[in-house]
Each structure stands twice: as structure tokens, then as C-alpha cells.
Design a binder for these strands. Structure first.
Length: 675
RNA sequence: GCUGCCGUAGCUCAGUGGUAGAGCACCUCCUUGGUAAGGAGGAGGUCACGGGUUCAAAUCCCGUCGGCAGCUCCA
């Protein structure tokens, strides 16, 4: 065995280092600055403490404060600080696990009584006191037997039990001490000391079970979050507040777009206002489909079980499907549109001249979701995919994917999303199909991405079992990522449905199938838009684009009269003919997020004008009616991103300003996906 | 689905064992007022549903349904 380890660095360079050196030693060899900045590292792809011994060859990446993962280390340290404070205040509390999460960290405890909000305040206060003491994190290593003894000495029963299962695989068990205040068995790494946990906050408590298993002891989980600077923490908390204000589950019903009811849990009821938004989006997409040579179809909502057995959905997805029985046959409500599209494909014998055959469907699908995961429009049990299936030859994949990416950019930009992240997911271990086909498919996707000049990340091994895919995340005005679009290659479905085309050689061939969705789900996209715009939809999407506000009822006939001129131009306009004062009508129209408020008094009647007050802006003065009709018609036709002055909405919604330009609070891809 | 919390008027919420409340919204009347809430009056609730305890239940207990947060899940 060589005494030298070959260490590969992120830039591809390799270093030869003695095997018994640690990752921290390597950092010091690279530079003293890096050694000081090092918080932890990735050694052979796993998060490790700087004290990790190399022990052999591998790849090394040093985590500094600037690394995206550094905050996870900080949060992990914060979890220790939390546990230290809890043990101080509740000496009988048994410790569970305390890992970092995407948003923060948590720690599980076995305690007699659930933690109260007052307890959390005391714990947080104690954490601040402990932080001030500034005890360093110091690492100790021992073998499993010694570790078990140590855990029993500390009174950590659950961890001791856990270790007994673990010890077969782990040779070295590490502990982290903070002086004699607190000790925890932990892989590390950690920041230097409690003092280094600069900004943190406890955000709540909830129930949990030991090791996540309901048959195990119930525990209490305390959630918190931590950042390197107070500014980042404040920003994070402000973002959460902002997201709460924009919550589509509150705004949607308030703006009369949709509602949810006990009579159909998980299924939205679309109101007239929501349907306007729906139809505008649908027509945007349909316009693109036409220009790109798609055919649009509609397949049945309910099809027999046999179909779903054939497609493979029954085996894999049965628990999430709805079934109905009639005529002693069993039918399933469709959870996906592709089998229907395949049936339509197979109604004809296709020539290679027909390919690529692009078949689109706004398909209403039903998927039974566990009650706990339902979340307004973001996670519903019934939703409408803007689905399409492209049947083509392997040679055509690249061009088709390129066109999908182009359409995606156009649609997203029109909706107001410029920031998009793409992920290429390649072959998973458990897969079907020949290697050669996978090679071709993956390289087709990759070259399409390059041809589109798109930056992308590779999620190796994350593809579907039936083919590789590109997942597209858009970023909203709060910096949150949402997985909406997806482009998936499928070699299996054409096989299962025995789809064919006749080639130039006169022989029958198997087409490749591309599943693609741009919006993902109409419902969810509308939810995202409501939150993205804080309810202040641009003119083309707004259910009511302008409202006429007569000063007194003397001007009401005039208002009704000119409203007709707006409607004839295809615009959506209301008249507020109530007997309220103008201030009250303005306030009300603002709360409805109507883009244009048009005030009409005697002067305007006289001059055949309206006084224009754009949403969020000040009085723009009198504008001839015909000019304004033309202006709004243009904004509508062009699907202009926002009405020109609609920036903020001070008073009742300062919510829209300030956040739009801020950098992403979290770069994590969106928490939900539904395609 | 799991853990915890919650369910009172269209909405936001008071009401901890003794006759169901407020603000906003709605309706009527007065007011006709020029850029973010004019005034008065009225109507509106089987306190989610079912069972139990009690002389008495919105209130306490059990169950069901629904919601929220977190967990898990999203072929």
C-alpha cells in the first residue's frame, strides 16, 4: 500500500499527499488563506470535517464561507447549539438527530411535554448566551465500542442504540465537544465555535418520531434557521413574510380567481376571474403550438384498466389512481395523457414523411395525493397539463428538443419569467433499453442544449427509467425555483404500444417519443403567477383590465356608454356605479389589483376623456377615450409584461416592491414538482 | 398517510361550562362627494359533522371530515 494519496481538486489538478494527512492539511498546502477559510470539505463526494484523514485517493473540494454548501455546515453547527441549549434547560431531554435542511436545521428531542412558544424563546435566549461563551467545536475520534460507552456515559440512549446498528460499517466514530458544555456524536464538519454561528433564529416546533418511523418513540422537533450574516437572516425572514403575503391560497380566493371546498378536497373550483387568466395563458400556448406545427387532440378522462396495465402505469402508480366500476369492467381516471396520445397515433399507419408528429393536449389528469401534501394549486389532485407528445426518429430528437426549448423561452418570457435553470438528467442505474439508444438520446439532449446556447447542470443518474430528460426550473420574483417544464425522452411507451412508422426503406420502425410540458400544470402555473406578481397581473392576464369610477351617479350613464367602447375593442372593463365616494371606489379597485382606474367626473364627460390612474401610480390626467382604448388594446395584444407604471402598491401591499431585484434567497430547486 | 395545531357570519377574528359577538363585506335609506374607507339602519350563524360527559356544551372527552405547519411522498 502506497503511503501517498492522490488528491484530485475541483480544477482538475492532482496533488500527491501523504495518506495520513487530513483534508485541512491539503487546504493548507494549497494556501494559508484557504486553510483559514476552510469550514469543511467534500472528500470523495461526501461532506466531511477538515480533520478527515485522506486514507487513500479521492476528489477533494474545500468548503469555505463562500461555497453554496457552507451554510449547511453552519446550520448543522447551529443544531448542536440548539441541542446544547435544550440540554441545559431540559436535562432529561433525549437527543435524536439534528441535521441541516434546505431552509435551516432541526433537532429532535424526547421530552415529556411538547415545547411551547415560551419554551422556544427561552431556548433561543439560552442559545445566545452559549454563543457568547464562544466554546470551540473540537473533534474526537474513537472506535465503535468506545463510542457506545461514551454515548451511555452521556446518557444518549437513542444514539447508543443507533450506533449498534451502525458500527458494522463505520470504523471511526467522531464526536464533537464544545468544552464540557455539550458533546454530540457527529460526522462533522463544523464551524470553528459557537461564536461563529453568527445569525440564527428558532422558527417553530412540530411533532416527529425517532428515525422518522411512527412505530418509534414520539419526539418533538425544533426548527430553526441560521446564516453567516444577520443581513442574510433578515432577508430570509423578510422573504418568508413576503411569500406569506403573496400566498395564492389567500390571494386567489380574495381576487375571485378560484376557491377550494370541502366537497372536493384537492380540486380547485375556477371562478370567472380565474378562467380569464386560464384562457389567456391557454391562448398564448395554443398560438405557439399552431406556429410550430403541432396538432391538438383531446383524449377521454376515463379509460379501461387494461390500457393502464399495458402502459405500465397500473403497476407503478396504481395507489395514486382513481378507479370506477361500470358494466363489471374497471376503468381508471387518467393520471397521464401519453397512453391516450399513443392510441391516437396508432389509429393510422404512419410514414416516415409524417414524422416528427407533434401532438398536443391540454389534458386534465387526476392523481390521488395524500392529504398532507395538498397545497392549493401547487399540489392538487386534479390538474391540467399543457402536454405534448412528439413522435420522431432518433435523428430528429435534437431538432425537436431545440424547438421545445425555444418555445419554452418564448412562453416563459411572455409570462414574465426570464430566469430559468436547466438540468439534464442522465441514465439511472435501474433502466430499460439498449445502451446505444441511451448514448444517442443523451447526446441528442445535450447537443440541443448547447445549440440553444443554454447553460445547464447535469444530474447524473437522475433520469427516468424509460429515458433521459431535461427539467426546467423557472425563478420567480422572490427568487424561488419552480420546476414547471420538462422534456423527457421515452423509448418504452412506443414499445409497449407497438407504435410503428414505415421508413423510406419500406420497413417498419419504432418511433421515439418525446413527452414535453412547458407550464407543467395550468393550475400550478396560475398559482405561481399570482405569487410572482403578488396578484398584480399584467394587463393581458388581468381578469378586469380597467374600471370606470364615476365621481357621482350623474356620470354613470357616460361611464356605461364608454365601457361599451372598451368592450368592443376586446377589453375587460367594469363600472363601479355604487353610491360611494371616489376615494372609497379607488381603494376598492386597488384592492382588486385592477391595472387601470379610470375616473370620470363632469369635466371628463364634457371633454370625452377619462382621468387615468394606473395601478400603483399617481393620476396621469385626462386622456381621450379613444386614445386610451387604443393604448390598452395594444398592451393586451402585445402581452406587455406589466402595465407601464404598475410597480408598487404602497399601503396595503408594499409587498411588491423591493424583492423583485433581490438575489435568490435560496438556490434550491423548487420544493414541488408535478409532471 | 404521520406528528402537532386549528375549524364561531361571505372575510378577519373575540368569546374556557350558564341567552352567540366585533370590524370589514352585503342590503336599504340619507349623502352626489375630484384621487386609498361619508353617515344611519338592516339582514346574516344547527359555533365543521357525529357521538359522549353534564341540570346546562361553541367551550370538556371520543370519533369523522376539512384546513395549516412540519415530516414523508411526487412513477
Amino acid at each position: 500500500m502506497s503511503a501517498v494519496a492522490r488528491v484530485t481538486l475541483p480544477d482538475g489538478k492532482t496533488l500527491e499527499v501523504e495518506r495520513d494527512k487530513t483534508c485541512g492539511d491539503v487546504a493548507a498546502m494549497i494556501g494559508p488563506g484557504l486553510a483559514r477559510a476552510a469550514i469543511a470539505c467534500y472528500w470523495r463526494g461526501e461532506l466531511c470535517a477538515s480533520e478527515q484523514q485522506l486514507g487513500g485517493d479521492g476528489s477533494l473540494s474545500i468548503i469555505t464561507k463562500k461555497s453554496p454548501d457552507a451554510v449547511r455546515v453552519l446550520r448543522h453547527s447551529a443544531a448542536h447549539l440548539l441541542a446544547a441549549a435544550v440540554r441545559d434547560l431540559f436535562p432529561d431531554a433525549q437527543l435524536g438527530f439534528g441535521p441541516p435542511t434546505d431552509e435551516g436545521f432541526y433537532y429532535d428531542f424526547v421530552v415529556e411535554e411538547p415545547f411551547t412558544p415560551e419554551d422556544l424563546e427561552r431556548i433561543e435566549f439560552r442559545m445566545r448566551e452559549l454563543k457568547k461563551e464562544g466554546l470551540p467545536f473540537t473533534r474526537r475520534e474513537m472506535d465503535a465500542a468506545a463510542a457506545a460507552a461514551e454515548l451511555r456515559r452521556l446518557g444518549y440512549q437513542l444514539k447508543a442504540e443507533y450506533l449498534e446498528e451502525l458500527k458494522l460499517t463505520a470504523e471511526v466514530i467522531s464526536f464533537y465537544d464544545n468544552g464540557d458544555r455539550f458533546t454530540d456524536m457527529c460526522r462533522g464538519g463544523h464551524v470553528a465555535s459557537f461564536q461563529a454561528i453568527s445569525a440564527f433564529k428558532l422558527v417553530g416546533a412540530s411533532g416527529a418520531h425517532w428515525r422518522g418511523d411512527v412505530d418509534n418513540a414520539p419526539m418533538q422537533r425544533i426548527h430553526g434557521t441560521a446564516f453567516f450574516t444577520q443581513e442574510d437572516l433578515d432577508h430570509h425572514l423578510a422573504m418568508i413574510e413576503e411569500a406569506k403575503k403573496r400566498d395564492h391560497r389567500r390571494l386567489g380566493p380574495a381576487l375571485d380567481l378560484f376557491s377550494f371546498h370541502e366537497e372536493a378536497p384537492g380540486f380547485p373550483f375556477w371562478h370567472a376571474g380565474g378562467m380569464v387568466v386560464w384562457h389567456e395563458i391557454e391562448s398564448l400556448v395554443r398560438g405557439e403550438l399552431l406556429g410550430r406545427g403541432y396538432k391538438e387532440i383531446r383524449t377521454p378522462l376515463i379509460m379501461t384498466d387494461e390500457l393502464w396495465r399495458k402502459s405500465g402505469h397500473y403497476d407503478h402508480y396504481r395507489d395514486n389512481m382513481y378507479f370506477v366500476e361500470k358494466d363489471s369492467r374497471s376503468y381508471a381516471v387518467k393520471p397521464m395523457n401519453c397512453p391516450g396520445a399513443c392510441i391516437v397515433y396508432a389509429t393510422d399507419l404512419h410514414s416516415y414523411r409524417d414524422l416528427p408528429l407533434r401532438i398536443a393536449e391540454f389534458g386534465f389528469v387526476h392523481r390521488y395525493e395524500l392529504s398532507g401534501v395538498l397545497h392549493g394549486l401547487f399540489r392538487a389532485r386534479g390538474f391540467t397539463q399543457d402536454d405534448a407528445h412528439v413522435y420522431c426518429t432518433p435523428d430528429q430528437i435534437e431538432a425537436e428538443v431545440l424547438d421545445c426549448l425555444d418555445m419554452l423561452r418564448v412562453v416563459y418570457r411572455t409570462l414574465g419569467f426570464d430566469d430559468v435553470r436547466l438540468f439534464l438528467s442522465t441514465r439511472p442505474e435501474d433502466r430499460m433499453g439498449e445502451e446505444e439508444l441511451w448514448d444517442r438520446a443523451e447526446s441528442a439532449l445535450e447537443s440541443a442544449l448547447r445549440a440553444a446556447d443554454e447553460e445547464f447542470e447535469v444530474n447524473a443518474g437522475d433520469g427516468a427509467f424509460y429515458g433521459p430528460k431535461i427539467d426546467i426550473y423557472l425563478t420567480d420574483s422572490l427568487g424561488r425555483g419552480w420546476q414547471c417544464g420538462t422534456i423527457q425522452l421515452d423509448f418504452q411507451m412506443p414499445e409497449r404500444f407497438d407504435l410503428e412508422y414505415v421508413g423510406a426503406d419500406g420497413a417498419r420502425h419504432r418511433p421515439v417519443m418525446i413527452h414535453r410540458a412547458i407550464l407543467g400544470s395550468m393550475e400550478r402555473m396560475i398559482g405561481v403567477l399570482v405569487e410572482h406578481y403578488a396578484g398584480q397581473l399584467p394587463v393581458w392576464l388581468a381578469p378586469v383590465q380597467a374600471i370606470l369610477l364615476p365621481i357621482t351617479d350623474r356620470q354613470s350613464p357616460y361611464a356605461e356608454d364608454i365601457a361599451v367602447r372598451f368592450r368592443k375593442a376586446g377589453l375587460r372593463i367594469d363600472v363601479d356605479g355604487r353610491g360611494d365616494k371616489i376615494g372609497s371606489k379607488i381603494r376598492d379597485a386597488h384592492n382588486r389589483r385592477i391595472p387601470y382606474l379610470l375616473i370620470v367626473g363632469d369635466r371628463e364627460v364634457q371633454d370625452e376623456t377619462v382621468s387615468v390612474r394606473p395601478r400603483g401610480g399617481a393620476d396621469r390626467g385626462a386622456v381621450p377615450v379613444d386614445d386610451l382604448v387604443a393604448e390598452l388594446a395594444r398592451l393586451h395584444a402585445e402581452r406587455a409584461p406589466m402595465s407601464d407604471t404598475a410597480q408598487s402598491d404602497e399601503g396595503q401591499s408594499a409587498e411588491t416592491q423591493s424583492v423583485r431585484t433581490q438575489s435568490a434567497g435560496s438556490d434550491e430547486p423548487g420544493p414541488t414538482k408535478q409532471t
